[in-house]
Design a protein around this nucleic acid. Structure first.
Lengths: 174, 174
DNA sequence: TCGTGTGTTCAGAATAGTCTGAACGATGGA
DNA sequence: TCCATCGTTCAGACTATTCTGAACACACGA
């Protein structure tokens, strides 16, 4: 089978790179990820750095980030000193792993800060009401996140199911 | 009723400011929003600028952003030339409005770019499979977003319901 | 042991994002 | 009309983030 055209790969790399901001990962990291996704086999650090026109240093750091997310892993080739990289093949799994890591890094600390604040007894009146509401909201988001991020396979099914329900689950009131 | 202590307001402003990054809104915008949330009545541009130690220019731009999100509105006071501002009082409504605007600004264009790419017939093999999966994933996210962002009131109920379901909806396979 | 090929680190350069403050336009009172 | 007050804009200052490339560490074969 002939390979995917370089041009398409190129475009995909840039599109995914731009989209990275949405998921909260930076452009270089997203571009490396895209290149690996668009590649059948494995790639070496040097090859990645060349194809994406970025320094080896940057490529190395980006790969480390991707391994931390758990969406890229290293493969050994016997008799070759270089490290090679492949992407996790399941897109949903990738998606959940990235979300999980982001939640840990960003959401959880922010949630702590707000909670701590809510324990102080100084808020009054309407302001207190808003803080309570916000605490509820954050608790709900947190609970949903924990539930869905726990198990990608069944979450995927649940989400797809919800997305495909016929419109709409509720008539407007009255 | 005595007012919420200034110290708590201060802390809340900073906590919310830091949290802004999570929702994709910048620090100044989030700080202005926080101050309005922590304030019973309305505030003038000048007062906001003073209390938050930021330039009137920045405060003005931040308020414009918040009005675009639909989470802050202007109130007129008869006989006063100044504009005053209040926040939308319902936290969930705020949350959905911000998400909706962000989706429009960031997700939709990215989605378009990927879709356009998928129409090109050049992708092959495993790579094609991944692109298909990704398209599915994005379509699901899009569909869920449309559904939930459409109607804050019932979505709030639905999300709270899901969050409170007893653990866990599914036994691990086998 | 030395030389070569490899990956990593990090100081500083480059870039991107944010904020200020002066200039300006608009409004209304005198 | 003129003046005072208020909100907005945006060029440029400032700050934060990202990226490069040189230095280094390590492993292997000769």
């Amino acid at each position: 089978m002939e390979p995917t055209s370089n041009d398409t790969v190129q475009q995909f790399v840039e599109a995914w790179g731009a989209m990275g901001a949405l998921w909260g990962i930076n452009r270089s990291v997203a571009r490396v990820h895209a290149l690996l996704m668009a590649t059948e086999g494995h790639l070496s650090l040097e090859e990645i750095s060349e194809r994406l026109q970025m320094s080896k240093g940057n490529a190395s750091m980006s790969l480390r980030e991707l391994r931390t997310f758990g969406v890229v892993r290293q493969v050994e080739v016997p008799g070759d000193r270089r490290d090679f990289y492949v992407t996790e093949p399941d897109v949903w799994t990738m998606f959940f792993r990235i979300m999980k890591e982001r939640k840990r890094r960003e959401f959880d600390p922010a949630l702590d800060a707000i909670h701590q604040l809510l324990e102080q007894p100084s808020a009054k009146g309407e302001v207190l009401g808003r803080l309570k509401q916000m605490s509820d909201l954050l608790a709900t988001v947190e609970s949903l996140a924990n539930r869905f991020l726990k198990d990608p396979a069944s979450s995927k099914a649940a989400l797809s199911f919800m997305a495909d329900l016929p419109f709409s689950p509720k008539r407007p009131k009255k």
